[in-house]
């Protein structure tokens, strides 16, 4: 490295302090929930939540895993919707992006405007709700969980921008001369070369599915179809959530407050453990998307 001058040293100190402070603020609230989920109910009732509880206990987690059917079922729904929905979304989005990337498609600009216009104007909640409930009869089906957030115009346009920027037209032309059909070019050339962009956009889509609680709140009343976040919401917002959770008569010694925290941890833990490893795909996605088109 070059020799640092004094003004650069000052800047460095300022950066460390301010960014460090922000980073701390970003994680401390989550840390408080984590640490208090291990606090005994007694210490929460008498001392409230704290940075470091006086009595530790695993009661709340015991309770969660005493009858875990509900949580496991919710995990099942969420994992299925996230996995299947992301795969379908990515494949079809990529295909549309490829069509708009091909220079020999004369109406490619009209097609992208057809998509872009939906971000400028929309019909609002009421027609959307009535369409799904009354016309498509998707209420209380797994399809509404899959379809409601399946495609995002910006993601499709980002994929197209990626293709425009990184796949030369000559590649397609030479494949055509070799006699490859349009779909084959897509499947055997474009898809393998687009893996970084697809990984990034796939991650955004998957996160959207994983954290979706709005769709089930609007369209799902059947408990067996509740995904993870909505189950958590239901439990946190209902007064007698603990008996709901363990399917038993509420007991007095039930760890009520710490159970809420333990459930929050069980529902969000995996993503917090996972995200440092997939973070680079999100950064990639933001970087690709930053190129306006």
């Amino acid at each position: 490295m070059t020799i640092r001058t004094s003004d650069e040293k000052v800047m460095n100190v300022i950066s460390y302090i301010i960014v460090g402070l922000f980073a701390l603020i970003a994680v401390v609230p989550f840390f408080i929930v984590l640490i208090n989920s291990f606090a005994s109910e007694h210490s929460i009732i008498y001392n409230g939540y704290s940075f470091w509880p006086k009595e530790f206990s695993l009661d709340a987690y015991h309770m969660v895993f005493q009858s875990p059917e509900k949580m496991f079922r919710a995990y099942g729904v969420t994992i299925f919707v996230t996995g299947f929905g992301t795969a379908v979304s990515l494949f079809l989005s990529m295909m549309a992006a490829y069509v708009m990337y091909r220079k020999d498609v004369r109406y490619r600009n009209a097609l992208s405007f057809f998509l872009y216009f939906t971000t400028l104007f929309n019909g609002g909640l009421v027609p959307y709700y009535l369409l799904i409930v009354q016309n498509l009869h998707l209420k209380n089906t797994i399809f509404v969980l899959l379809l409601a957030g399946m495609f995002n115009v910006f993601n499709i346009l980002i994929l197209r921008n990626f293709l425009n920027g990184s796949l030369p037209d000559a590649l397609v032309e030479s494949a055509k001369i070799d006699g490859a059909g349009d779909f084959r070019i897509f499947w055997q050339i474009v898809i393998p070369l687009s893996k970084p962009a697809m990984a990034a956009i796939g991650m955004f889509t998957a996160l959207g599915y994983w954290n979706d609680w709005w769709t089930p709140m609007m369209f799902i009343e059947k408990e067996s179809l509740y995904p993870l976040q909505y189950t958590l919401y239901q439990i946190l917002s209902s007064a007698n959530f603990s008996s709901q959770m363990v399917n038993s008569i509420p007991r007095l010694d039930m760890p009520k407050e710490s159970l809420k925290l333990a459930l929050t941890m069980v529902a969000t833990g995996p993503i917090v453990l996972l995200y440092p490893f997939v973070q680079k795909y999100f950064v990639q996605g933001i970087t690709v998307g930053a190129v306006k088109g």
Binding site: A26, V33, N211, T268, V272
Partner: peptide, 17 residues
């Protein structure tokens, strides 16, 4: 990485926090 954590939490979890 730390700054990115809240982005991955659902609003349900944020509400709990």
């Amino acid at each position: 990485t730390l700054l990115f954590l809240p982005y991955f939490l659902s609003w349900v979890a944020v509400a709990a926090i």
